[in-house]
Amino acid sequence: MAEKKISKAYRDEFYPPIPTKMTKYWRTNLIYQFFKFVKLNFKIMRMVVKGHS
């Protein structure tokens, strides 16, 4: 017998924003993520350099 699906309505997990299919696609698009990798590394390095007095 198929298990009854329980609705999430009115629970905490019902309200947060959930990524769309397109958002999920971009998260694992390797070309797009390569540019993100470079950009995030740059941001981290900038902060690391600032953090060392």
């Binding site: 998260r27 993520q33 995030l40």
Partner: peptide, 10 residues
């Protein structure tokens, strides 16, 4: 705050 496979690579 960014989520993606780039985060895993980092």
């Amino acid at each position: 705050g960014e989520i993606g496979v780039a985060g895993h690579w980092i």
